[in-house]
Amino acid sequence: MSTRALEITDLTYQYPNGTLALDKLSLAVEANERVAIIGANGAGKSTLLLHLTGVLRASSSSAFKVFGTELSKKTLREIRQRVGMVFQNPDDQLFCPSVHEDVAFGPRNLKLPESEVLKKVEESLAAVGLPDHGSRSAFQLSLGQKKRAAIATVLAMDCQMLALDEPTSALDPRGRREIMELLEQLGGTQLIITHDFALAQRLCSRAIILHNGRKVADGDPANLLNDEALLDAHDLL
């Protein structure tokens, strides 16, 4: 049996103010699968992502495995290297004075030799279509370019899985199309949190709908996202 990229069993999380953000959520993502996580605001998508970064800890009754490794304080570092997190706002992800430094940040943290770091930076920037933008500062880039640069910062770390938080939000049609083409071309395991139904249908082989912290549907995006009754019942229409 091949190892699953992500396996979550009975994940429950209650915020200190009493809001139940995740309610016995179980889901699995196979390796090399591209899965869309869809849900209205407050459905628990971001809370799920915070678990993936290790900021929030799963309780003992649940299981949270990334490529077969249980997420814990000890394995956090390893898992962070395996999962490339692309945050919603690229201004949070690009924090260095130049794009080059930003992309080099991850590989340097992995203590790669400088020649290797340079190679990774060049490769990653080329992969996202920004080969000549290394010396630019992030605020000299357009939003679409910033989002692609943010993806480059995790590509440079050779992640086994990409987790993207609304990669196409607030983009113009061209920027949106470029991101979609990029994700399609990159392949590998991708977990995409999105409100963009067209993206989910075009790129993803599976869609998971969350509502009030529970998984309410899991299947072919084309079927789920055209099911008006289903969407309406979960505040998506």
């Binding site: 570092r77 997190m85 706002n89 992800q93």
Partner: peptide, 13 residues
């Protein structure tokens, strides 16, 4: 906080 999170998720300690 979000920037720190982004740093951590790229292996910063």
């Amino acid at each position: 906080e979000r920037v720190y999170l982004a740093m951590c998720s790229r292996g910063y300690d």
